Amino acid sequence: MPFLTLSHVTRYTYRQPVAFGEHRIMVRPRESHDQQLISAELTITPEPSEVRWLHDVFGNSVAIATFDRRARELVFDSRVRLDHSPAELATVDIEQYARSYPFTYSSEDMPDLLRSIERQHHDPHREIDRWARRFLDPSGRTDTLAMLSDMTAAIRRDFTYVPRPEKGTQSPIETLARRKGTCRDYAMLMIEAARALGFAARFVSGYVYNPSSREQRTGGGNTHAWVRIYLPGSGWVEFDPTNGIIGSRGLIRVAIARDIYQAVPISGSWAGFPGSFLDMTVSVDIAVDEPSAAPTATTPLAPQPVRA
């Protein structure tokens, strides 16, 4: 049950002062039975004229900031203290009827899962479908969890992880053809492959850290992306194809969405002379504390006020 101290700083710099439009900030981790916030503070420079908090359609915590002054620099500094109790693979307990694939979700669940089963990317030649079906047992009955585990491991094993700080995501077909990509590319490939087989799958944005010195995770130093798949009996289960892991060990959820564009950590606009924008830098640092050094009690916090 590690306690974590998380720092996420995003900095935009400009040649001369520019005006800022509304910004949408999604960096506050979601609270759940496996991760509880001890404290959370978001500092924005320059100080916004107004900040309001809301929950989006997926229940993600979002801050909306508006500005009334110009500046050469815009900084979002998120500091979080978190009690993380990650779920292990052994806790995945699938209902008997869904332990073998194919199966059909129950009539009670299906109406709410349909949009997460719906494909988001064109696959005119069924390339993703063919790749996904490689993991099926030719006998006709496939162990559900084993199949999804094999798919997760295959992406980790057969594809080359290449960090890409620029915005945007490859299409799943591009990732499949190039055999390389970022964590968000891998997540979208696995989501589309799972949906091709009829699973409800969602995109997850958050952070990754090394739970111990023996476990080295790929994708640190920035935000991370992975997948959630709905399995009857266990609900939404985490699959991280970048690291080939199942469960939330080493993963901190911030945003869950049907599509990657609904889970952008920071988005907004600016106005100024052409060529004013210079650079954007992102720094994420996560420190894992010894349990004995952590507080003995925690209180769930409401969103904290923004400070200049």
Rank of each mutant, 00 (worst) to 15 (best):
A153C: 08
M1I: 07
L278T: 07
G250I: 06
I117P: 06
H55P: 07
L251A: 07
A194L: 00
A302P: 04
Y97I: 11
R130A: 14
E174K: 12
L113F: 01
Q216W: 06
I173Y: 10
S106R: 12
R214G: 11
A200S: 13
S212M: 02
F58V: 01
Y101K: 01
V51R: 00
I229W: 05
Y12N: 07
G275L: 01
T13D: 13
V18G: 06
V51M: 09
L251T: 01
S7H: 14
K167T: 13
R178W: 05
K167D: 15
Q16V: 12
I245C: 02
F203T: 05
A153R: 13
A187D: 07
K167I: 10
R156E: 14
R164P: 01
D143H: 06
A146Q: 13
I229S: 02
G250Y: 00
I246L: 12
F159V: 08
R69N: 11
L89C: 12
T43H: 14
S61K: 11
P102S: 08
S61G: 13
Q216A: 13
M110R: 15
D123G: 06
P241V: 02
D137T: 10
G59S: 02
A302M: 14
P172V: 00
T298E: 09
P111T: 04
I266P: 09
R130M: 12
S7W: 06
R69L: 11
N210V: 03
D158N: 09
Y12I: 00
I173L: 14
G250M: 03
G244A: 08
V284C: 04
P48C: 10
A294G: 12
G233H: 10
R69C: 14
L278D: 11
I191S: 03
I246T: 08
G247Y: 01
R72G: 14
R99Q: 15
S212H: 05
G198R: 07
T66M: 08
R133L: 12
L278M: 12
E215Y: 05
T5H: 13
S39W: 09
W236M: 10
G275H: 00
N243V: 04
R253L: 08
N222I: 09
A257P: 01
D285P: 09
H224V: 04
T296R: 15
Y12S: 01
L148P: 03
I245G: 09
A201V: 00
S107V: 15
E166D: 14
